[in-house]
Design a protein around this nucleic acid. Structure first.
Length: 118
DNA sequence: ATTCTGACGTGGG
DNA sequence: CCCCACGCCAGAA
């Protein structure tokens, strides 16, 4: 029989989720980005929700700084998915990011766009 | 199969 | 600035 045909999946070993993790890991210290920005960089701007879903699926992995990813308004919408109630905010403040009422201060200034930076 | 939800984004008022 | 409605894709019930 034929030599192994590489199965059905020849290309794209990594899933969309893994790509999200890769980009998230590239976020510099003290900087933040939005789900839409990552989705757009991956070529799936319409799947911004999937980016957040990927984070949830990652299971609070330390490899993925999910706390650096927020929505377009700069609000910590996913803080409820972290262990603690304000763990996400703590991590951001630990990096020098000001957060008040789940809202990042100077979000536009701290915003890191993978498309523009990479 | 259908239906709903969700860590989103955009557009209109 | 806020609020509302729609689109979007994936997964759970």
């Amino acid at each position: 029989m034929g030599v192994n045909n590489n199965d059905t999946r020849s290309d794209s070993d990594i899933s969309f989720f893994d790509k999200v993790y890769e980009v998230a890991k590239l976020i510099p210290y003290g900087r933040v980005t939005s789900y839409g920005a990552i989705a757009k960089y991956l070529g799936a701007a319409r799947s911004a929700r999937m980016v957040g879903w990927a984070m949830n699926a990652c299971g609070n992995r330390d490899d993925v700084p999910a706390h650096r990813v927020v929505n377009r308004k700069g609000i910590l919408t996913g803080k409820h998915h972290f262990k603690g109630t304000n763990l996400m905010q703590q991590l951001l403040e630990n990096e020098g990011v000001e957060v008040v009422d789940n809202q990042i201060i100077d979000f536009e200034k701290l915003f890191w766009d993978p498309m523009k930076e990479l």
